[in-house]
Amino acid sequence: MTTKEPKTADELLNAVGPAFGKLRRSSLLEVESPISAKDLSRTLVLNIVLEAEQDGGREMTVGAIAEHLGVDPSVASRMVSDCISAGYLVRAASQEDGRRTVLHLSPGGTDLMARFRRHQRATYEHITADWSEQDRLELARLMLKYVAAQDSLRHRAASKGRTPAS
Results as ranks from 00 to 15, higher is better:
Glu5Met: 13
Pro6Val: 01
Thr8Ile: 10
Thr8Leu: 03
Ala9Asp: 09
Leu13Ala: 08
Ala15Val: 02
Val16Lys: 01
Gly17Phe: 11
Phe20Trp: 10
Phe20Thr: 04
Lys22Leu: 11
Arg24Glu: 14
Arg25Thr: 10
Arg25Met: 13
Leu29Asn: 14
Glu30Ala: 14
Glu30Phe: 00
Glu30Leu: 07
Val31Thr: 13
Val31Arg: 12
Ser33Asp: 13
Ser33Val: 09
Pro34Cys: 00
Pro34Val: 09
Ala37Asn: 09
Ala37Tyr: 06
Ala37Glu: 14
Lys38Ala: 15
Lys38Asp: 13
Asp39Leu: 00
Leu40Lys: 04
Thr43Met: 12
Leu44Asn: 08
Asn47Glu: 10
Ile48Thr: 10
Ile48Tyr: 06
Leu50Thr: 06
Glu51Tyr: 07
Glu51Arg: 13
Glu51Ala: 10
Ala52Cys: 07
Glu53Asp: 13
Glu53His: 08
Gln54Cys: 07
Gly56Tyr: 05
Arg58Trp: 02
Glu59Tyr: 00
Thr61Met: 03
Gly63Val: 02
Ile65Gly: 00
Ile65Asn: 06
Ala66Leu: 00
Leu69Asp: 05
Leu69Glu: 10
Val71Tyr: 05
Asp72Met: 07
Asp72Val: 02
Pro73Leu: 01
Ser74Thr: 11
Ser74Met: 09
Ala76Lys: 05
Ser77Pro: 00
Ser77Gln: 15
Arg78Asn: 11
Met79Gly: 09
Ser81His: 11
Ser81Ile: 02
Ser81Arg: 15
Cys83Thr: 03
Leu89Phe: 02
Ala92Lys: 15
Ala92Ser: 14
Ala93Asn: 14
Ala93Trp: 03
Ser94Gln: 08
Ser94Asn: 06
Ser94Met: 08
Asp97His: 06
Asp97Tyr: 08
Gly98Arg: 15
Arg99Gly: 12
Thr101Gly: 00
Val102Ser: 05
Val102Phe: 00
Pro107Leu: 05
Pro107Val: 06
Asp111Ile: 14
Ala114Ser: 15
Ala114Thr: 13
Arg117Ala: 14
Arg117Leu: 03
Arg117His: 03
Arg118Asp: 11
Ala122Arg: 09
Thr123Tyr: 06
His126Val: 06
Ile127Ser: 02
Asp130Ala: 11
Asp130Trp: 00
Trp131Thr: 01
Ser132Pro: 01
Glu133Ser: 11
Gln134Met: 05
Arg136His: 01
Leu137Pro: 00
Leu137Glu: 15
Leu137Tyr: 01
Glu138Phe: 04
Ala140His: 14
